[in-house]
Amino acid sequence: MRELAGLLRAATGEDEGWAAAITAASRLEDDLGLESGELAAWGEAVRARYGVDVVGHVAGLDLDQIITLTVGDVAALVSR
């Protein structure tokens, strides 16, 4: 989880305090305020690190699923 938060921090340019507040329940859009470019950058970092295509996964979701997508959801995807 901390590693995903670190990748998020790198993708967004946010500070350590922001990253420290990330939990599994943090929603990418509502709680973290990720913009599409930041999500794409994070997705690329996750793909490079874990070989998981987060951006492709998100592309297959409907709007409600995208809005409620959490860091924990991505962690579960990575751990598969």
Rank of each mutant, 00 (worst) to 15 (best):
A48T: 13
W18S: 09
G72M: 04
S36I: 13
A25D: 14
V46R: 00
D64Y: 05
L77H: 04
V74L: 09
G37D: 14
V55D: 10
A10K: 14
S79I: 03
E38M: 09
E44L: 10
Y50E: 07
A20S: 15
V54R: 02
M1W: 12
R80N: 09
A41E: 07
L39G: 03
G72F: 04
M1R: 14
L8F: 10
D15R: 08
Q65R: 14
G72R: 02
D53A: 05
A40Q: 13
A76T: 12
Q65V: 00
R47D: 13
D62N: 09
L8A: 10
V46P: 01
W42D: 00
G13P: 12
G13W: 13
V52N: 05
G43F: 00
A24I: 05
I67G: 08
A41T: 04
A11N: 09
D64F: 06
Q65C: 05
V52F: 09
G17F: 10
G17L: 10
H57A: 11
E35A: 14
A24V: 06
W42H: 02
L63D: 13
S26L: 04
G56F: 01
D53I: 01
A45C: 12
A48H: 09
H57R: 12
L4R: 00
A19Y: 07
G56I: 01
D53M: 06
I66L: 13
S36M: 15
W42M: 10
R27W: 01
A20R: 14
E16P: 05
A75Y: 05
L63P: 02
G13T: 14
R49D: 11
L7W: 04
R27L: 03
D64R: 05
L77E: 03
G51L: 03
A24H: 13
T70L: 03
D62L: 00
R9E: 15
A25H: 11
D31C: 09
H57L: 06
D73F: 01
D30L: 12
L4C: 04
A48N: 09
L69N: 02
V52T: 13
A41F: 04
A10W: 11
R49P: 08
E38L: 04
L34S: 02
R9G: 11
L39M: 13
R49Y: 09
R49M: 06
R2F: 13
E38N: 11
G6C: 11
G51I: 01
A21L: 11
R27E: 07
D30W: 08
W18M: 06
G60I: 00
D30Y: 09
R9C: 14
D15Q: 06
V55G: 01
L69E: 02
